[in-house]
Amino acid sequence: MLAETVQRGFCQPDALSNELALGSDRGSALPRRILAEISGGARSAAEGTAWRLWKRARLPQCEWNVEILSADGRRIARPDAWCDEVALAWEIDSKEFHFTADGYAATLSRNNRYAAAGVVLVQTLPSLLRSDPARVIRELKAAYAVASMRPRPAITFR
């Protein structure tokens, strides 16, 4: 609910944190943790789990839900996580949002834009974040290693 409120633009994370700080500490551990994830850029429960896994992987800082642009300013995509240091995108792709006919076509188009721009992409199912986090961390680290071995493409973000 907290992520949905922020994602729909009804409230900013700081306002929610301030409101929480005014109340009792009793029962506030989970909302506080979730608000820390939201403040870090996560915009869904799966992204919150991904945010924690990225931290566990001890990879360089990444940005969450930023728009990435080609050298000439064309929009490439808005990945769930973006490691600007090596131009690595991480997408948490659920069947619910990406495997309808239109969603699947849009996902393929997005992935083609990543490839054309030279972006290394990791795609993860939300269920895998919970069922095999060690595998997800291995995949992220392997992709980071590959991305760091090639010249970084001229990509910017905002």
Rank of each mutant, 00 (worst) to 15 (best):
M1C: 00
E4G: 05
E4S: 09
F10L: 10
F10W: 11
Q12M: 10
S17P: 05
E19V: 02
L20I: 02
L20S: 06
G23W: 00
D25Y: 04
R26V: 12
A29E: 04
A36P: 02
S39G: 15
G40F: 00
G40I: 01
G41Y: 02
A42N: 03
R43P: 00
S44P: 12
S44V: 04
E47M: 05
A50W: 07
W51E: 08
L53N: 03
R56H: 07
L59K: 11
L59Q: 07
P60Q: 12
C62F: 12
I68W: 03
L69W: 15
L69G: 00
A71I: 06
G73L: 07
G73K: 14
P79N: 08
D80Q: 00
D80E: 12
D84F: 06
D84E: 15
L88R: 05
E91F: 14
I92Y: 03
K95T: 08
E96V: 08
F97H: 15
F97G: 07
H98F: 06
F99K: 07
A101Y: 04
A101R: 14
D102C: 05
D102G: 03
G103M: 09
Y104L: 08
A105D: 09
A105F: 01
T107R: 14
S109H: 13
N111T: 11
N111P: 06
N112H: 12
R113E: 04
Y114F: 15
A117Y: 00
V119E: 06
L121A: 13
Q123Y: 06
P126W: 01
L128Q: 09
L129E: 01
R130G: 06
S131Y: 05
D132H: 11
P133R: 07
A134S: 09
R135Y: 08
R135N: 07
I137F: 11
K141D: 00
A142F: 11
A142H: 13
Y144T: 09
A145F: 11
A145I: 07
V146G: 03
A147E: 04
P153V: 02
A154C: 13
I155E: 05
F157P: 06
